[in-house]
Every structure is written in C-alpha cells, then in structure tokens.
C-alpha cells in the first residue's frame, strides 16, 4: 500500500517532534548561551558572529530558497531551503527586516543528511530572507526577497 500524503506527513511530523524534544532536553544549557547572543543580535552579521564566530559566508547557487513571490499572509510564510552541497552541518534562516533577524537554526548530524528544510516564518514587511548553510566547515549563503503587502483592489 502506498502511504497517503496525509499519513506520511503525520508520521514525519511525529518523529520530528521527538527529535526536537530530545535535542532540547539534551542541550538546554548549551542552547542558552549561543541563542541569547544570536537572538539579541540586531542584524544578520552580528547574529552570524554569535553563531559561527564568522560573518563571511560565500554566496552560493547551490542553495535554493523556495517561497512565494508575495506572501499570502505575513504571519505564516512558507519557506523551503534546498542545499546541493556535501556534508551539510546546519541551515540558519534570517529575515533581514525583522526586529530579531535570526529565525531558526537547523542542525544536521552525521554529515550524510540531505540539506533540506521546510518551515514557516513571520514577516512584517517586504525584505530578504537569507539562508546561511554550513557545509564541510565552510559558510555559504543565498537570499530571496519576499514581498509583504496590503491586499485588496485586485481586478
């Protein structure tokens, strides 16, 4: 039997929840230090310094950000990041215009995981979403502008 998309999503999500929970329990203390600095950073560079002690990420066309051109709802903007680089260690997402630019960091263990994430972010105004990828101990980045607008007046 082919697993339906719904069941597949349910299964994936429940395992993802387990993963997130265990990570949180295991490393609460560690998380507290880096996250405080990174999340209080007022711009992308500061946050990158706090996270990687390096703010220089090479622009790469091996990173694809998939998102709508215009957000249907700025409160929940779907964003997907696909990375075609070997040994992805982490994907970090920023929204340059947000009061706190750092959105999330996704860590990949074992060095053999496919660099792929899909999430929802919150944006108050039009701006760039930046994905910084750490792969094989180097930093790469890509960005994509997402427009946030008032609705109405459509013909």
């Amino acid at each position: 039997m082919i697993t339906s998309r719904r069941n597949f999503l349910k299964n994936t999500l429940s395992s993802a929840i387990v993963l997130i929970t265990s990570t949180a329990i295991l490393s609460q203390r560690v998380l507290a230090d880096w996250s405080k600095m990174a999340f209080t950073a007022k711009n992308t560079e500061e946050a990158l310094m706090a996270l990687f002690n390096d703010s220089d990420a090479t622009v790469s066309d091996k990173i694809t950000i998939v998102s709508p051109e215009i957000a249907e709802n700025g409160k929940v903007v779907p964003v997907e990041v696909k990375v075609d680089l070997p040994r992805v260690e982490s994907i970090t997402l920023f929204s340059e215009k947000n009061p706190v630019p750092l959105l999330a960091q996704f860590n990949f263990t074992g060095g053999r995981a496919k660099g792929w994430i899909k999430t929802r972010i919150k944006m108050a105004e039009t701006g760039k979403v930046i994905a910084v990828v750490k792969a094989d101990s180097k930093l790469y980045q890509a960005s994509r502008e997402i427009k946030v607008t008032v609705g109405g007046c459509g013909g």
């Binding site: 215009i70 249907e72 607008t149 459509g154």
Partner: peptide
C-alpha cells in the same frame, strides 16, 4: 494572488502563487 487581492477567508485551505 487571489488570497491577497481578495479575501483569503473564503478559501482558507488553498494557497496560490
């Protein structure tokens, strides 16, 4: 851009682009 130019509340389950 239907859910932006027109009310999204009528079609809450659908996404366009």
């Amino acid at each position: 851009y239907t859910p932006i130019a027109n009310p999204a509340r009528f079609i809450p389950d659908w996404t366009f682009g």
